[in-house]
Structures are given as C-alpha cells and as structure tokens.
Computed example of a mutant assay.
Amino acid sequence: MMRQDVVLLDRATDAETGLMEKLEAHRLGRYHSAISLLIFDGAGRQLVQRRAAGKYHGGGLWANACCSHPLPGESVADAAVRRAREELGIAPSLRPAGTIRYRAPVPAAAEPDGRLIEHEHVSLFVGRHDGPVEPHPEESDATEWLERAALLAAIGAGGFVPWFALYMRTLPERPDDWRAEADYGYFDLM
C-alpha cells in the first residue's frame, strides 16, 4: 500500500507544520487538515454512507457522504471534488460551508486499544447531487438518502461516527444558512 500523508497543522494558528503518515497521525491524535462533504438531493434528503468494514477506523459505522484529507499541496476544494468522485462515483456541485475543529476517539478494531483519535480542522462542503451513487467498495458498503427527521433519529439511535453527529448538532438546520466564512468552533469529545 502506498504511503498516505496528512497535512499537520498548528493548533493555535491552523498554519501548516509538516506531514505525517495518516495512520500514525490518527494513532497519536495529531491535529491535521480534513474535508467533509454533506450532499443533498433535489428533495432535500441528505446522503449518508456506511463506512466499509475494512476501513482503518469507523468501519461499519454510518457517516456523512464523504470525509477525507487533502493531499500535500492540494487545496481543500480540489480534495472535495476528487474524493466525491473516488469514494462515491459522483460529481456534485459543491460550495464551501465553513470549518469545524474537533478531537474525538473513533473505534478501530485493528488497533491494540481499539481506537484511534481524530483531531481535525475540517473544511466543510455542501452540495447537491441527483442521480446514481456508485460507492467504491473499499470506502463504503451502503448509501442512503434520508430526510432530516429520519437522519436525526438514526443518529440518536447510534451507529454513526462521532464527527457526523457533531456536525448535525452544530450546523444550522438549513444548509442554505451554512456559510463559507463560518467557524463553528472547536470541540473536544475525548
């Protein structure tokens, strides 16, 4: 498997400080850059995916449409477009929807203590897609379109990654109210 690096950031300034191999960054809980896509269809339903069982963390849990990391030297906007295509086989219209920062434990069956630590500065993107979704089997083993009430009930019942539950508790209810310049804060869920 090819080495995958994440872009490390300074927690106080969000300035880039270097690179680290992705799994090691999650083992150590190092603060790094990430992206998350929240995709809606024309009926206002939100796309969720169940992470493939073989994922390095959060396997089998439900999440937002797409979450990943920009490559070194890649803009977060370019990473969002790339990962929508790679993970879901889609090319949604996307716009920046603000940032959120958090630290949270995430289940990781292959790790000795059964968890990894997400410590991320997330650039959020909201988009629209009407049409088929073709998830890559190494990324996702199921997708669903859910109306907000059903989605909130499902999150309340469990089985979702902690970052998506945080997004749904923190972001304004209407995606039209999500703004590129919005900073939704820092949350320590440890």
Score class of each variant (00 low, 15 high):
Phe40Arg: 15
Arg30Phe: 00
Asp5Gln: 12
Glu86Gly: 06
Ala180Asp: 04
Ala15Pro: 04
Val7Asp: 06
Tyr102Ser: 14
Leu9Tyr: 00
Gly60Met: 04
Lys55Phe: 08
Ala34Cys: 03
Leu189Asn: 11
Pro70Gln: 06
Ile90Phe: 02
Ile155Pro: 05
Lys22Glu: 00
Gly159Thr: 10
Pro72Ile: 11
His136Tyr: 02
Ala104Gly: 11
Ala165Ile: 00
Met20Arg: 15
Gly158His: 11
Pro162Lys: 08
Asp176Ser: 12
Val126Ile: 13
Glu147Ser: 03
Pro175Met: 02
Glu118Tyr: 14
Arg83Ser: 06
Val126Ala: 14
Gly159Cys: 13
Arg50Met: 08
Lys55Leu: 10
Arg103Val: 06
Cys66Arg: 07
Leu116Trp: 09
Arg179Gly: 04
Pro172Ile: 02
Pro112Asn: 15
Ala154Val: 08
Ala157Cys: 08
Gly54Glu: 15
Met20Asn: 12
Ala153Trp: 05
Ala12Thr: 03
Gly89Tyr: 02
Glu139Met: 15
Thr13Trp: 04
Gly29Lys: 05
Ile155Ser: 05
His69Phe: 12
Gln4Pro: 00
Ala157His: 09
Ala63Gly: 04
Ala104Val: 13
Val76Cys: 13
His119Val: 11
Pro112Cys: 12
Leu38Glu: 04
Met1Pro: 06
Val106Trp: 09
Leu152Ala: 08
Leu47Cys: 08
Ala104Ser: 15
Ala15Thr: 11
Ala157Asp: 11
Val48Tyr: 05
Thr170Lys: 11
Leu94His: 07
Thr99Ser: 14
Gly58His: 09
Asp177Cys: 12
Ala34Thr: 00
Arg85Leu: 13
Ala53Met: 12
Trp62Phe: 13
Gly131Ile: 01
Ala180Cys: 03
Gly29Leu: 05
Val133His: 01
Gly58Thr: 07
Leu8Cys: 10
Ala12Ser: 14
Leu47Val: 05
Gly114Ser: 01
Arg128Ser: 13
Arg51Phe: 09
Asp41Glu: 04
Leu189Lys: 10
Ala84Gln: 06
Ile117Leu: 15
Arg179Cys: 03
Ala157Met: 03
Arg50Ile: 07
Pro72Cys: 07
Leu47Phe: 06
Ile35Ala: 03
His129Ala: 08
Trp163Gly: 14
Pro172Asp: 02
Gly156Phe: 06
Leu166Glu: 07
Ala97Thr: 05
Met1Glu: 01
Arg103His: 11
Lys22Leu: 00
Glu16Gln: 13
Pro72Trp: 08
Tyr102Ala: 12
Leu146Lys: 05
Trp163Met: 13
Met190Thr: 15
Arg115Ala: 10
Pro132Leu: 12
Ala150Val: 09
Ala15Phe: 11
Ser36Ile: 04
Met1Tyr: 00
Arg95Gly: 05
Ser68Thr: 04
Phe164Arg: 09
Met2Cys: 00
Asp183Ile: 04
Glu181Asn: 13
Glu134Gln: 11
Val6Asp: 06
Ser123Met: 03
Gly89Lys: 10
Val122Lys: 06
Ile117Pro: 04
Pro72Arg: 12
Ile100Gln: 05
Leu9Gly: 05
Ala43Asn: 12
Arg169Gly: 11
His129Trp: 14
Val48Gln: 07
Arg30Gly: 00
Gly54Lys: 15
Ser68Cys: 01
Ala53Cys: 05
Arg148Gly: 01
Tyr184Gly: 05
Ala84Trp: 02
Ala91Ile: 00
Ala63Glu: 04
Ala149Ile: 02
Arg11Leu: 01
Arg83Asn: 07
Val133Thr: 01
Ala149Trp: 02
Arg148Trp: 01
Pro132Ala: 15
Arg128Gly: 15
Glu139Tyr: 15
